[in-house]
Amino acid sequence: MSTTESFKLHEMLEADTVFIKDLPLCRLVLMNNANHPWCILIPRVEDVVDIYQMDWQDQQQFLNESSMLSEVMMQLFGGKKMNGRCTWQYLPQLHVHNCSIRAGY
């Protein structure tokens, strides 16, 4: 894995989240949002803004960590659907949102 010791969370994510844990590839944070259980995974890889820029091992690990997080959140929060999406149009740091949807979908 290509995680770096010099990893720095983007200041917008830093301001709006609470640190939970560093996984093998990603930093796991909780979004400061009382309406939904909303976690974010950020690969600790420098200069990556899209998944294809990571090597294939990191891409697979990213998928594994995202899937694991989705499963745990569904078990904890009893959602009907997991909303997981990669979002980078506002931030130059790759991150994926995982939010458990309780209502209909």
Rank of each mutant, 00 (worst) to 15 (best):
A15H: 12
L13K: 09
Q60A: 13
E65D: 15
H97W: 02
D47H: 15
K8W: 00
R85D: 03
N64E: 13
Y105C: 00
L28H: 04
M1A: 07
V29Y: 07
Q61M: 15
Q75G: 08
G104E: 00
M54F: 01
Y105K: 06
C99H: 01
M74V: 01
M1L: 08
E5G: 09
T17N: 05
E71M: 10
N33P: 01
S67K: 11
W88S: 14
L30C: 08
R102W: 04
S6I: 04
P43V: 04
Q75V: 05
C99E: 03
V18K: 11
S70R: 15
V49P: 00
D22H: 15
D50F: 09
T17Q: 06
V45Q: 03
P37S: 10
T4W: 00
I42H: 04
C99R: 09
C99S: 07
D22L: 04
V45P: 00
D58Y: 00
M54Q: 01
F19I: 02
D50K: 10
M82C: 06
S70C: 15
E11L: 08
Q57G: 03
V72S: 13
M31Q: 10
D22I: 03
Y52A: 01
D47Y: 07
W56V: 15
A15F: 09
M73L: 14
P43L: 02
V45W: 00
M31E: 10
R85S: 14
S2P: 12
W38Y: 15
Y105T: 04
W88P: 06
L13Q: 07
E5K: 15
F19K: 02
D47K: 09
W38F: 08
S67C: 12
Q57W: 01
S100F: 04
Y52P: 01
V18R: 08
Y52G: 00
I40K: 09
D58G: 07
E71N: 12
K21E: 14
G78K: 14
V18E: 14
Y52I: 01
N32R: 12
E5N: 07
M12W: 11
N33D: 15
L28I: 05
E71I: 14
N64L: 13
M68S: 15
N98S: 14
V18D: 12
H97R: 06
E14P: 06
M54A: 03
V45G: 05
Y105S: 01
K8E: 12
G79H: 11
Q89H: 10
V96Q: 15
E5Q: 08
M12D: 14
E11I: 11
M74P: 07
N98W: 10
I101M: 03
P43F: 11
D22W: 13
M54W: 00
G104C: 01
D22N: 14
W38C: 05
S2R: 08
V48A: 05
N32T: 10
K80R: 11
E65V: 11
M82N: 12
M82V: 14
L91T: 14
I42R: 05
D50M: 05
L41H: 05
S6A: 07
V48D: 05
G78V: 08
E46P: 00
E5D: 15
G84R: 12
M31Y: 12
Q60M: 12
I40C: 05
S67F: 10
E5Y: 04
A103F: 08
L28Y: 02
